[in-house]
Design a protein around this nucleic acid. Sequence first.
DNA 1: TTAAATGTTTAAAT
DNA 2: CATTTAAACATTTA
Length: 295
Amino acid sequence: MPELPEIETVRLQLAKVLPGKKIRKIEILKLKSFQGKKELAEGKEVIGVKRMAKVLLIDLAGDIDIAIHFKMTGQLVFEPAVQKSTKYEVPSAKGRIVGGHPTKDFTGELPSKHTRVIFRLDSGTLYFNDQRLFGWVMVNSEFKIQNLKFLQNLGPEPFDITGEEFEKLVSRSKRPIKLVLMDQTVISGVGNIYANDALWEAKVNPRRLANTLRGNQYKELYKSVLGVLREGIRYGGATAADAKYINLHGLGGHYQEHFRTYDREGEECLREDGGIIHKFSLGGRGTYFCPVCQR
DNA sequence: TTAAATGTTTAAAT
DNA sequence: CATTTAAACATTTA
């Protein structure tokens, strides 16, 4: 599910609470969701929380890393340790840190039926939940994780390149521009939501072949990719439509309230140019655009 | 019942 | 070889 801004949002939150805490025990509830050796992490202290594109990295003492890929429906929930003074309080979602795919697991009792891995800390508990089981948690040496094929093959994040480099990377392909934006080996971190919105911002048709953008469209697209990603981070990521219950608790992000095209099929283009947002399938993914301004 | 969902990989077809 | 399409991976919801 989550793209770069959603993972970055979790990272920022977890970076406030995890460093200094120790992993006491890792419980694997679903084998498919876990790779590596949990013993390597048990007893180790968290040093920092990092991110590579859409992958979250929890850095532990002794050059051990926990890598987490959320895929479509992964989520993390950090439950702080219950304070003695609140011993008699009814358990609530208050004080939780949540991130990733929004479901009622954010606020419900944990572990839930979607909980796949539990990290017992010396203070608090971190739950990895994943409805569709595409995601994974990996514990291994920093070396092994850095050498994962998936991470090795990642292209640079948009934040780390110039407009000229962006144009060079993207225009090498003759595929439709949207597919190239979402190709993690070309540019990493951009997924379906932000690709749709960035193309709208730059007034580029998702189908346009990546080597045939006109004039300043490469520069415009570069700027709009950075823009929507930064905005996503500023709003704490997107938490999608079924998040009413979650927002009630003040959890989850708000980017979904600022979608340009995503999930707006049939609605008027925000530019009020008379266009109606049209949806079609490109590369097997829902693709939204305005036929008037994105030609 | 069918389709689609913030992702990635693989195989088969062009 | 480059590219495209479809399917696969589970599950849930519309």
